[in-house]
């Protein structure tokens, strides 16, 4: 008898190992996004309007997101990668096609952001935000003009600035400073960039991700390589900061919403994308995260004084020598190796 009881108990124990808590009545949409890149209040609005619950997770780099989706074992229904990563994910068949007829608010998206090279027909992605990479600096602490990447190799700013802890963006800074394309597939150019970054390393205060804003505000760092929206968020709060678009050119990027392959809630994901494309929701997000919207309806709602600023909606003439990242294909292993070697030094 005892034996039977213990066997039954064991079976029960094993069985519970494999059951999560599942409620069948409610659709739960798994959203995977950059940290601090959406106004989380809108989830409630979305749930009220559609009854669909949002499960929210964040990542810090495109590469981190890619690895998690590529290696499987995760169930995301929405993610928001950047240009080159979308190109790579399309090539590797990691994305579900998007049916634009189910997204009426797609009409709100400025045609400037549609049909970009990484997804020429917007078959897989819908624009979310766009921006640049540049240098934000504290005008109290840095009085000389900042207009070039070369300030980041200047001895007098030793220990005063941070680089961005993202492989493509940091290598981009060195490539652009040296006058090369940031999409180079030339190994000599890449090695030169590596040397430049290793040379620069003693001057760098830190390689940082999301906490760069805190470091600037607390004056831990006087200058930082940042994505424009971070600059925007800081500058709108504090007067003593400015954002420079380096004259050698930089990265102009576009983050689009995608549906990863294997999503079980494709219908709901479409609903969510349509929701994001709504003018008022776009405004809430733009207002919260500080990045530049791709949405014409949202454009009408934003603070018009932002138009023409370097950090939010710059004059397009300033962006003429800016590039968009493209996926280097298999050559990415060289970027990977070089980034590892820079960090290991």
């Amino acid at each position: 008898m005892k034996k039977i009881v213990s066997i039954v108990l064991l079976i029960a124990l094993f069985a519970t190992l494999f059951t999560g808590c599942k409620s069948e009545d409610k659709i739960v949409l798994n959203v995977y996004n950059w940290g601090d890149y959406i106004d989380e209040d809108i989830f409630e609005t979305f749930e009220e309007e559609t009854g669909i619950e949002i499960n929210y997770e964040t990542y810090a780099t495109n590469e981190e997101m890619y690895t998690k989706i590529k290696k499987g074992g995760t169930q995301y229904d929405i993610a928001i990668p950047s240009d080159y990563m979308i190109e790579k994910m399309i090539k590797e068949d990691l994305l579900e096609p998007i049916d634009l007829s189910k997204i009426p608010n797609y009409a709100n998206i400025d045609s400037r952001f549609k049909g970009l090279d990484f997804d020429p027909e917007n078959k897989y992605s819908v624009p979310y935000f766009w921006g640049t990479v540049g240098i934000i600096y504290n005008t109290d602490l840095i009085t000389e003009p900042v207009d070039s990447w070369s300030v980041l190799w200047d001895e007098k700013y030793s220990g005063m600035f941070t680089m961005v802890d993202s492989q493509r963006d940091s290598i981009m800074v060195a490539l652009k400073k040296l006058g090369y394309s940031m999409n180079t597939k030339n190994l000599d150019e890449l090695e030169a960039a590596k040397q430049a970054l290793i040379e620069q390393k003693p001057l760098v205060l830190a390689y940082v991700g999301d906490n760069v804003k805190d470091m600037l505000i607390s004056e831990e760092a006087a200058m930082a390589v940042v994505w424009s929206g971070e600059a925007s968020a800081v500058i709108q709060e504090y007067d003593n900061f400015a954002y420079a678009l380096p004259k050698e050119g930089s990265n102009m990027w576009f983050d689009n919403v995608i549906i990863p392959k294997g999503s079980k809630n494709i219908e709901a994901a479409h609903q969510f994308i349509d929701f994001l494309c709504r003018g008022d929701i776009g405004f809430k997000n733009a207002d919260y995260v500080g990045y530049a919207t791709c949405n014409t309806e949202t454009m009408k709602l934003i603070d018009q004084s932002l138009i023409g600023t370097t950090y939010a909606y710059p004059d397009l003439k300033l962006l003429e020598n800016f590039e968009i990242f493209s996926d280097p294909g298999d050559f990415i292993t060289e970027y990977d190796r070089i980034w590892t070697e820079i960090k290991a030094k």
Partner: peptide
Amino acid sequence: MLIGNLIEQQFLVVN
């Protein structure tokens, strides 16, 4: 970079 960072980087960043 410590060895833990190297491992983390290989898994999360450079895949």
